[in-house]
Structure formats: C-alpha cells, structure tokens
Simulated assay, not measured.
Amino acid sequence: MDTPLAIFAGRSNLALARAIAENYGTELGEVTIKSFSDGELYVKYEQSIRGEDIFVIQSTPPPGDNIIELLLLLDAAKRASVKRVTAVIPYFGYARQDRKDQPRVSIASKLMANVLVEAGADRILTMDLHASQIQGFFDIPLDHLYASRIFIDYFSKNPIDNLVVVAPDVGSLKMSRAYSKKLGAGLAFIDKRRPKQNVAEVMNIIGEVSGKNILIVDDLIDTAGTITNAAAALKERGALNVMATCTHPILSGPAYQRIEDSPIDELLVTDTVPLRKPSDKIKVLSVAGIFAEAIERIHTNDTISALFDD
C-alpha cells in the first residue's frame, strides 16, 4: 500500500502554502497553531498522521517565531509517528551568516541546520540559498530549487531587446552568467564594498552598460541599498531601462521607499516571502508550481534533478 501524503503549513506564508497544495491537487492538512498570552507558541495536528509522508511548509524570515513554529511542527510530527517529515522552507532565514568571518561570531546557518535536524526533519526542500555551501551543513538530504526557472520563463515570454544582465556583486556573478547565457544577453557586474552590515557602496561597473537595457539579478533584497545604489550607478553610466529580479523580497526598514525613489522601472520577486505591502514597481511571480512538483517527486522517490535547472 502506498504511503499517504499530507501537506501542512505554518503561519509565515499561508498564501504560498495554499497555492502549493492547490497545485498538487489537495488541501492543507488541519493543524492548530496559536500563541499564549506571553507569546509562547502551541501547535497540534488535528488529524492522524501516523505512518504518513508529510510536508511542512514554513519560510523562516524574521521574527524568530517563524523558526520556532517550524521546529514545533517538526517535533510534533515525529512524536505523532510519521513515516517521514520534510521541512519545505521556501526562504531559509539566517543564510547570510554562513561562515566565521570575524572573531566571536556565530555561524547561524549551521546552528539552524542543527536544530532543524534535531527537531525531527528527515529532509529539507528549499529555494535559492543565499550561500550554496549551506547544503553541506545538513547531514540529511537537502533539495535546492532555483527560482531562475520562473524568471527565465517570464523573460522568454516577454523578451527585452538590447539586454545586459548585471550582477550587483561578485557573489551574484555565477547566477547572472546563467541568466545572460539563457537569455542571449550581455553580462556586467558591479564591484561592491560593504563597510558594515546593511551598508553597500558601488565602486566600479565592469562591462558595457551605456545605451543598454538592464536586468539586475539577485537572490535577496533586505534594505534595498545594494540594488538601488546599483541602479543609480548604472543610470549614471548611460543605461536605459533598469529592471531587477530577486527571489526573496525581505524588504525591511527603508527598502520600499528606496525602491520607489530609485530608477528601477520594475522589480520582479517571488512569493517565498509575503510582501509587507504592495508597490506599483513590484510584480510577484509564484513558485507554487515548482514546489508542488518537487513534493510529488520526493513523495514518489522520483528524481528531481530536472528541477535544479539554474
């Protein structure tokens, strides 16, 4: 007899979770999640999951309650005797702290990996980790999806003439090169210095951008300093229209105002993280379909390498 499948979700991104379940052809399972008066969290599965293959969808952006909620859901599932529980984490928080680059700092990504495994995760499904080496922090299988499939499909259907893909920093260069190749576009990148956290300075633009339409490619936008400084510098160098993409629109602090005030004509993002508020400059593309397909392939023990197209 085939192992039953069930999909559950935490509260960080219920809209995406419902869309994933709908794309899969099912509904979210019943789970109660609530907060006590002092803020302590409580979770309970309201249906039997004994012996089932379950998938728990929960992005982990700030605040910390999102990761705690996921850990409690994983722990409750293991204690309910599931056969396997996969943590589906569209946005993996704390991914920017992936190494000990200064004395006396935490490697927060490794800590998150440890606690997820300790809480009971048998497998991780995520998208566009800020640092790919985080995959090596886990001693359980991790499937790493790429939003580039969504963006490249969009631009293939809505082509841009005279296009140059720009990496806003050296860390984004590999991803930008893939976009450039698949879209038949030019490539440039920005030499950036970051004097402190959440502060970016544009130093040099390497590549021809004058008279070109620009597509800036990044995996995450937090305060939007990097992307808006890059757009301004590109305009100063004679760029025409400036578009940008990012997988995870954290958009904290002054991000919205910076984007509104910037020369960016349109910002394409995915729904791995729900927008705090709408913006005429921001367009959301859904990753529900690719996550639903990955869940199907994991459940049936089929290969998902076809989904790793970056």
Score class of each variant (00 low, 15 high):
residue 4 P to Y: 01
residue 5 L to E: 01
residue 7 I to A: 03
residue 8 F to R: 04
residue 8 F to S: 04
residue 9 A to M: 08
residue 17 A to C: 11
residue 19 A to F: 00
residue 20 I to A: 08
residue 21 A to E: 06
residue 22 E to V: 04
residue 27 E to V: 13
residue 32 T to L: 14
residue 34 K to T: 10
residue 35 S to W: 01
residue 36 F to R: 09
residue 40 E to H: 05
residue 42 Y to A: 09
residue 42 Y to W: 08
residue 43 V to I: 14
residue 46 E to V: 08
residue 50 R to P: 00
residue 52 E to L: 03
residue 56 V to Y: 14
residue 56 V to K: 09
residue 57 I to Q: 12
residue 58 Q to R: 06
residue 59 S to L: 09
residue 59 S to M: 09
residue 60 T to Q: 13
residue 62 P to A: 13
residue 66 N to I: 05
residue 72 L to D: 09
residue 75 D to V: 07
residue 77 A to N: 04
residue 79 R to T: 07
residue 80 A to E: 10
residue 84 R to K: 15
residue 86 T to M: 10
residue 87 A to L: 06
residue 87 A to I: 02
residue 91 Y to I: 06
residue 92 F to T: 01
residue 94 Y to C: 14
residue 94 Y to F: 13
residue 96 R to F: 02
residue 98 D to A: 14
residue 99 R to Y: 01
residue 101 D to N: 06
residue 103 P to L: 12
residue 103 P to F: 11
residue 103 P to K: 14
residue 104 R to V: 04
residue 105 V to W: 01
residue 107 I to R: 01
residue 109 S to D: 00
residue 109 S to G: 01
residue 110 K to F: 02
residue 111 L to H: 11
residue 111 L to C: 09
residue 112 M to E: 01
residue 115 V to Q: 03
residue 116 L to Y: 03
residue 120 G to L: 05
residue 124 I to G: 04
residue 125 L to D: 13
residue 127 M to V: 14
residue 127 M to K: 15
residue 132 S to L: 04
residue 135 Q to M: 14
residue 137 F to K: 08
residue 139 D to H: 15
residue 139 D to M: 14
residue 140 I to S: 12
residue 140 I to Y: 12
residue 140 I to E: 13
residue 142 L to R: 09
residue 144 H to R: 12
residue 144 H to T: 10
residue 144 H to D: 11
residue 148 S to Q: 15
residue 149 R to E: 10
residue 150 I to K: 10
residue 156 S to F: 06
residue 157 K to G: 06
residue 157 K to A: 14
residue 165 V to Q: 11
residue 169 D to C: 15
residue 173 L to R: 06
residue 175 M to L: 13
residue 184 G to Q: 05
residue 185 A to N: 01
residue 189 F to P: 03
residue 190 I to N: 00
residue 192 K to I: 05
residue 193 R to C: 07
residue 193 R to K: 15
residue 193 R to N: 12
residue 201 E to R: 15
residue 206 I to P: 00
residue 207 G to K: 08
residue 209 V to L: 13
residue 211 G to M: 07
residue 218 D to C: 09
residue 219 D to N: 06
residue 221 I to G: 03
residue 221 I to A: 04
residue 223 T to R: 09
residue 227 I to K: 08
residue 230 A to I: 12
residue 230 A to Q: 14
residue 233 A to H: 11
residue 235 K to C: 05
residue 236 E to P: 04
residue 239 A to M: 08
residue 239 A to R: 11
residue 246 C to Q: 12
residue 248 H to F: 03
residue 252 S to H: 07
residue 252 S to C: 13
residue 257 Q to V: 05
residue 257 Q to D: 12
residue 259 I to E: 10
residue 262 S to Y: 07
residue 262 S to H: 10
residue 270 T to G: 09
residue 271 D to N: 15
residue 271 D to S: 10
residue 271 D to M: 06
residue 277 K to E: 12
residue 278 P to Q: 01
residue 280 D to H: 02
residue 280 D to A: 07
residue 282 I to C: 03
residue 284 V to A: 12
residue 286 S to L: 08
residue 292 A to F: 03
residue 295 I to P: 07
residue 295 I to W: 05
residue 295 I to Y: 05
residue 301 N to K: 13
residue 302 D to C: 10
residue 302 D to K: 15
residue 304 I to A: 06
residue 306 A to Y: 14
residue 308 F to D: 08
residue 309 D to L: 15
